[in-house]
Each structure stands twice: as structure tokens, then as C-alpha cells.
Amino acid sequence: MTTDLGFWTLQALNALQLSMLLFLLSVGLTVIFGLMHFVNLAHGALYALGAYFAASVAAVWGYWAAFLLAPVAVAGVGVLLYSGFIQRMRKSGPMAQVLVTFGLIFVLLDMTRIIWGDLPLAIEVPAMLGGRLAFLGVEYPTYRLFIIVLGLVVLAGLAFVLGRTQIGAMIRAGVDNDEMAACLGINVERLFFCVFCVGCALAGLAGAVAAPLLSVSPDMGLQILIPTLIVIVIGGLGSLKGAVAGSLIYGFVQTFGAVLAPQLSSVLIYALLAAVLVIKPVGLFPAKG
């Protein structure tokens, strides 16, 4: 089987699809950290909320409404979190932030259980994206190809905004040295707030996109949290390049590890993370040297 080219293509597509899903989640988290030095463990819970919103909306108005509304709704929750907790925790150390957001995980997890119940929900793949597509000599589910394309579009969009526009330059300046940026007349606080909302919206989008693939259950946020953290720590906190590199590394190591060395696969990614941290304690592409 390992000599068949189709097999490698299929696994590479699987890896890419996982990478793109993780990219949507980790890019928000990493930029929030880079800009605000804020560790938001509740990011995974926002992803779960996105999936739940999507499931509820899809049941009434169909998938595409859910696809558009879930990110908006999660960004709304992000606004509440920001004004309620995060603004006040900005100046505290990483330890306090980790703990407050750990508490938020508990709270959000049980809130989803109270509102939507303990049973997993399922949502249908939209008719337009159902079925399979012949691609590079293999049959691949159209919906998974859609996730890959969506991830690439978001990546291109963010790369353009961060690299070529004025607001992107302001964000990069803020990540580099927030005090200096503030001295130059950039309203860093407002910038933080916008970036935080965009990060939350992306988490919601990831949830909405992942919902048809996985069943929507209360602990899905907790399950995705560790992979997301691994991605941003391998990649280096705060940089787009790091989020891309980390997601690709995680997706490919996880997928090919599971196929080629099943007995080692689960340990492999953690061993890789440990190795990266030993060799480069701040990750591969940190925003600051």
C-alpha cells in the first residue's frame, strides 16, 4: 500500500485538512497572545460554542446561514468575555490568566451542557458539498476539500491584511513593541479588542466548519485545546508564519504517524513538541527574537 501514489495523496489531503482546521483555531490564539500577551485557554471552548451555534442555526435556516452566523455569534461572546474578564486580567501574570481562562472553560462547558444537553448533535453536510470529487487521481470528499480551500483563503486573506495594509502594519508594530506603537499614536487597546474579536470569530468559524465532520459534543473544545496549544508552541507565539508551520507540522505528523507507526503515533507529536522546546525554547518562528 505504501508504494501506491494514490495512498500518499489521500493521506496528504487528510493531513492538509487537519492542518487547515487547526490553523483556523491557532491563528486567532497566537495573534491574541503575540499582541496582548494573553493566554486564552478558553479558545477551545469558543470553538465548541461555534459548533453548537452552527448546529442550532443549521437546524432552522440550513448550513450556509450557520456558516455565516456562527462566527458572528462567537465574536459576540468574545466581546462579552473581553469586557467582563480579559480587559481586567490584561496586566496580571500568565499564571492568573491561565487560571481565569481555565475557570472559563469549566463555566462554558457546563453552560453548553445546560443549554444543548449532554447528547452529541449532528449536522448535515450541505447538499452542494456532499459526495466525492476526483482530485489528483483519488476520490476525496468534497466537504474536506472545501475545508482545505477555506483554510487557504483565510491564510491568504490574513497574510494580505497583516503584510500589505495599514491596519496590518499597526498590528505588527503592536506585537513588536506595544509601548512604542502607542507612542506613535496607535490606539493599541482598540487594536487589541478588534484582533481579539477576529480571533474569536475564526474560532467560531472553525467550529462551524468542523461540526459536520465530528459530532458536536460538550467536550469537543477540551479535545481540540491541546492540539491547538501544541501548534502555537511549536510554531512560536505571535506569528502567522508560526501558526502555519505549526499546523502543517501537527497535521502531517499526526496523520502520517497514525498510518505508518500506529503504536507510536500518539507519543510522536508530544516528543516532537518536547524536542522543539529543548532546541528552541520559544518555538520555530517566534514573533520576537
Binding site: 493566554v39 500568565p94 507565539l237 508530544y270 516528543a271 518536547a274 522546546l277
Partner: peptide
């Protein structure tokens, strides 16, 4: 191994080792 890491990186590094043990035992 983790003595060189600080703050959030230390938290993450120890998390990685813990998860490594967990998934191995699992």
C-alpha cells in the same frame, strides 16, 4: 529539560511531557 523555559513555555513544556506519558499509557 524544562529548566530553560519560563512562563507560558514552561507550562506548555510540562504539559507536553504529561500528555506524552498519558498517551503512552493509554
Amino acid at each position: 529539560i524544562c529548566s530553560r523555559s519560563h512562563g507560558i513555555y514552561f507550562i506548555m513544556a510540562t504539559l507536553a511531557f504529561g500528555q506524552m506519558a498519558y498517551s503512552y499509557v493509554f
